[in-house]
Amino acid sequence: MGISAIMGIAVSGMQAQPTRLSATANNVANALTPGYDRTVTTFSTRPTGGVSASVSTSGEDTLPDSSNVDLASEMLDAIGAELSFKANASVFETGADMWDVLMSIKRD
């Protein structure tokens, strides 16, 4: 696997995290909406490498006078999205640094 492929996988991971964070923000905003069914983010691998994110409702039961949103798990999802984005950004930066080294070797 080449450096550019690894960087592409990292980019797909970074692109998936805003979808996850958006779903989490939507859940927090609707936590007090009666009958609201929380949304969940599902990640799937791409055949060419990387991930894609999709959002759907959880399908869990809700009470008519409340939602099924747990604010603690939503905060954990938000923190998880942040950490995942940072990890993928770090991989991308490392790949960019490796390209710089290879280009400086080629010039010399």
Rank of each mutant, 00 (worst) to 15 (best):
V40Q: 14
I9N: 14
R38F: 01
S22N: 15
L83G: 11
P64V: 02
S104W: 11
F85A: 01
F92I: 05
V91I: 09
V55C: 04
V101S: 07
V28R: 09
V91G: 09
M1C: 12
I79C: 10
G49P: 06
S73Q: 11
I6G: 04
I79E: 13
P18S: 03
E93H: 04
G13Q: 14
S44R: 10
V28D: 00
S56G: 14
R20I: 09
S67M: 01
Q15A: 12
G95L: 12
R107D: 09
V101C: 06
T19C: 05
A96F: 02
R107K: 14
L71Q: 14
P47D: 11
M1R: 07
N26K: 13
V11A: 15
K106S: 12
R107H: 15
T42V: 05
S22Y: 06
G50T: 07
G59E: 06
D61L: 08
N68A: 03
S44T: 07
I79D: 06
P47R: 11
S104V: 01
M1Y: 12
V51P: 01
A72N: 14
S22T: 09
G13P: 04
V40M: 05
V28W: 06
M14L: 09
D61M: 11
G35I: 00
P47K: 10
L21I: 15
W99L: 08
S67C: 11
R38G: 06
T19M: 13
A81T: 00
A87M: 04
M1W: 09
E60Q: 01
F85S: 04
N27G: 05
L71W: 10
T33V: 04
I79M: 14
I105L: 06
G50Y: 15
S58N: 02
K86Y: 05
T57Q: 15
R107C: 01
